[in-house]
Amino acid sequence: MADVNAVAEEMYKLVAEFFGKKNLKAGDLTKAMIEKFGADCTKTDCKLAIRQLMESGRCVYSYFGGSYITLPHKEGAAPE
């Protein structure tokens, strides 16, 4: 078991780094974290970390033909 808070923090950094450049899916983040933290970090840890980021409002899901994890922002299609 990895520390879910630490995983969430690393995920957040990654999402922030790629914001506006590349869309990351839940699977991309999970793979990246497992690579970073090693076998200690399970898919369940990653799931919990994503959940923490979502429920705290630090990250949001976005959809463009696929569901991505990104930072909250005003979306382009929304009217002024």
């Binding site: 979502m54 949001v60 899901y61 976005s62 959809y63 463009f64 909250p72 979306e75 299609a77 929304a78």
Partner: peptide, 30 residues
């Protein structure tokens, strides 16, 4: 097509939709 609307914590269950004529039809802007 909207991308990010939803309820807190969920990434599924809500399909974002906006009018492309929000000035003309403000009540369906969202």
């Amino acid at each position: 097509h909207g991308g990010i609307v939803g309820v807190l914590g969920y990434g599924g269950g809500v399909i974002g939709r906006y009018s492309d004529l929000p000035d003309k039809f403000p009540n369906v802007a969202h």
